[in-house]
């Protein structure tokens, strides 16, 4: 966990929100009563990260300025949540769940494959705790989407697609609707309820 200003990151002179992102920032701030703009900090940090790809100190300082907070208060939040990346990451961040259910369903192999793919530019890999999709273990979160029910081969397919610039379909990578049984539902098969 990063708890001090990292030194091994590119120096970012200045950060400014683009007009599109600034609109979103304003919308976020407007969610809160006047004078409570600091409540928007997590959302605004997320926007900064989406614009920049990671959170540089310049970006955090800019957020602090926008929300009229002391910079340290922003640093505290950014270092607390693992969703904030304080070092540059590849285009796709592979967050591999290795908590017990995923691990039982073979997350070790998934992890290995992800690590193999991680080149720092297209893919970066991160080990995370339970993503809350245990029914579909093993799971990898790639940027905003979950890719579920993976094995080495299906993961490779997903990664290859990303590499080609496509966006593969998120969700289960087996024949399964969300977390319903494989091969189709086994209960509630008809649309109407019959009383007997």
């Amino acid at each position: 966990m990063i708890t001090a200003d990292p030194v091994d990151v590119p120096y970012v002179e200045e950060f400014r929100f683009t007009p599109e992102y600034l609109e979103k920032v304003k919308a976020l701030i407007a969610n809160y009563p006047p004078g409570r703009q600091a409540s928007a900090v997590i959302g605004v940090l997320d926007l900064a990260q989406r614009q920049e790809g990671w959170l540089s100190r310049a970006a955090m300082d800019e957020v602090a300025k926008l929300l009229d907070m002391a910079p340290i208060r922003v640093y505290e939040i950014a270092t607390f949540y693992t969703m904030f990346q304080l070092k540059p990451k590849g285009k796709y961040l592979l967050q591999v769940c290795t908590t017990t259910p995923c691990w039982l369903r073979g997350s070790d192999a998934i992890m290995k494959a992800c690590q193999h793919a991680a080149d720092g530019e297209t893919f970066s890999v991160q080990e995370v705790e339970c993503l809350g999709a245990c029914v579909n273990a093993p799971v990898v979160q790639i940027n905003d989407d979950f890719y579920e029910d993976l094995d080495e081969a299906s993961l490779q397919k997903v990664l290859d697609a990303f590499k080609r610039g496509e966006t593969p379909k998120p969700g289960p990578q087996v024949d399964r609707q969300t977390s319903a049984p494989e091969g189709g539902p086994t209960t509630l098969t008809s649309a109407t309820l019959r009383s007997e």
């Binding site: 990063i2 708890t3 001090a4 910079p71 640093y75 270092t79 607390f80």
Partner: peptide
């Protein structure tokens, strides 16, 4: 406002960050 607690859990540190 210069001091804060960065990180969390066992990794929490009292620091000025910069």
């Amino acid at each position: 406002e210069e001091l804060g607690a960065t990180g969390r859990g066992e990794s929490m540190e009292v620091t000025t960050y910069v």
